[in-house]
Design a protein around this nucleic acid. Structure first.
Ligand SMILES: [Mn+2]
Ligand SMILES: [Mn+2]
Ligand SMILES: [Zn+2]
Ligand SMILES: [Zn+2]
Lengths: 142, 142
DNA sequence: AATGCAAATGAGAACCATTTGCAACTAGCT
DNA sequence: AGCTAGTTGCAAATGGTTCTCATTTGCATT
């Protein structure tokens, strides 16, 4: 996928601009993140990154994820009693539906809900900075 | 407050029916929970419960909270990077706005949002079982 | 190409909220 | 009062994540 390759180069640029060095390990982690279509946790990212560069340690995965999160390149999710999961922050904002039977994570977006949230915050005298919306569901029967 | 007293007796009844013994320690924790107007965490509940019964241990606070949660009497919240917070589940459903500067927790309810969530789940082929909606906000300036 | 140095790394220890094992206790029933 | 399964306090374990530190490495500069 040359799309993904460009994206990786772009991400590396963002890091360099932020004064963050692009090491072998970070390159591996970035590639894995850019290619991921799911919401892997740290140890799954570690497992995948090791296939590219066997020296990547779990510590570095965590450290890199934190760095990327601060750069705004990666987003961290803490779903109900589960380890933290990550995804690149390039897609437009969306929220998540979690299948409580399979653990599958489905993305969705509702402009109406987004707007309502801002309105509610405003009514209470607040500015909405960020929010967390997760739907825990069961697949409809029949 | 005799209201609160009745509520406590009621809660104890629910427990007994569920085959859960109402011990000295649990009575203390229940009373604290029933009186709480905020969203305390386990160690804060422990601190308060000890004023009623100094023998209450933190383990028992945790064990009791888990039991109460399973009985549906207590609700657990895991707000952004913070310890778990608890509240009795007697009030009608509501969601929370968290002041990211002070940590204050404000309750709100929007029937529109509640309905939209169910609709979104349905569109995706799911039944909404429960959800989590948290607004992280900053007090409006001026 | 060699140098210098701050940033980054791997390994393992530390952290810390929460859970658990166990021996001593006790609520609730006869 | 006595029985017994549920409950307790304590201490130790757990497990995801962060931190420490000696060593390595990226990269700007000669
Ligand atoms: Mn997503
Ligand atoms: Mn509440
Ligand atoms: Zn959203
Ligand atoms: Zn709600």
């Amino acid at each position: 996928m040359r799309q993904s390759k460009n994206r990786i180069v772009e991400l590396e640029g963002i890091l360099r601009e932020g004064g963050v060095r692009v090491t072998r390990q970070r390159a591996a982690i970035l590639k894995i993140l850019a290619e991921a279509e799911d919401h892997p946790d740290a140890s799954e990212l570690h497992r995948r990154a090791k296939e590219i560069d066997a020296t990547v340690s779990l510590s570095t995965v965590y450290r890199t994820l934190s760095a990327l999160e601060q750069q705004g390149v990666v987003q961290r999710h803490a779903f109900e009693n589960a380890t933290a999961r990550f995804e690149t922050a390039d897609a437009p904002h969306h929220d998540h539906l979690i299948d409580i039977e399979t653990g599958a994570v489905i993305e969705f977006r509702s402009d109406k809900i987004e707007q309502l949230q801002a309105e509610i915050a405003a009514e209470l005298g607040y500015d909405l900075v960020r929010h967390r919306l997760e739907l825990y569901c069961r697949k409809r029967k029949e």
